[in-house]
Design a protein around this nucleic acid. Structure first.
Lengths: 103, 103
DNA sequence: CTTTCATTTCAATGATTCTTGAAGTATCAC
DNA sequence: GTGATACTTCAAGAATCATTGAAATGAAAG
């Protein structure tokens, strides 16, 4: 993960609505959830949810897949892992204190 | 780490100048660096650096300590570790794919 | 006590991001 | 075809965030 993407990904996670979406999609697992259901789950209008889903998709944190009328969004666990790796390895130079938190 | 702090911390890391400061302070290790030196290292005016250092300190990513005229800023490795933990455990429910990136 | 040095704070401006509601696109069912 | 459903896009305004340069603070030194 390059620095530019890391900055954008941190930005994506710094919004309450988007973080709620991420958590909801994590709980949904690999099957994902349709946009409308996500909007309802996080208490956002369809338009607002779409705005934030697009922002998340732009960073690769979620992937979108159209199935006829519905668009399914799915969390990308690898993208989150890569962000954690960026934080601990690239940024923190593998500092032991930092790493010890999630081992 | 609660969600509110996590949001603020992601926000703190989503700015290029602040990320440069974090990386510079990581390379400085536990002794930290004075504000002026940080400003110079990241190519920011004193005022701009101060603004971003305050933002970082507000989230606990760095700690400030005054020594007579100079103010030393130090990275808090634990805070970064806690953010990584939030990401992998709280957000990702310990998903193995996410965890595998930094093990 | 004045000056200098290191740094912060302030106010103004500019830039980015978020929200809202309306209009648009795509797909299905009739 | 028309109508309904699922979702996105757009434009306008509101809110938040970043940059700048000037003024203020706090601490040492002469």
């Amino acid at each position: 993960m390059d620095e530019k993407l890391a900055l954008a990904t941190f930005g994506a996670l710094s919004n309450a609505t988007r973080l709620r979406i991420v958590r909801y999609l994590v709980s949904a697992g690999t099957s994902g959830r349709p946009a409308g259901e996500i909007a309802q789950a996080v208490g956002a209008t369809p338009s607002r949810a779409s705005f934030h889903l697009t922002a998340l998709a732009d960073t690769g944190l979620v992937a979108a897949e159209r199935q006829s009328r519905t668009i399914t969004y799915r969390i990308d666990f690898l993208a989150i892992g890569e962000l954690a790796r960026f934080l601990l390895e690239d940024c923190c130079q593998n500092n032991e204190t930092a790493r010890s938190c999630c081992s």
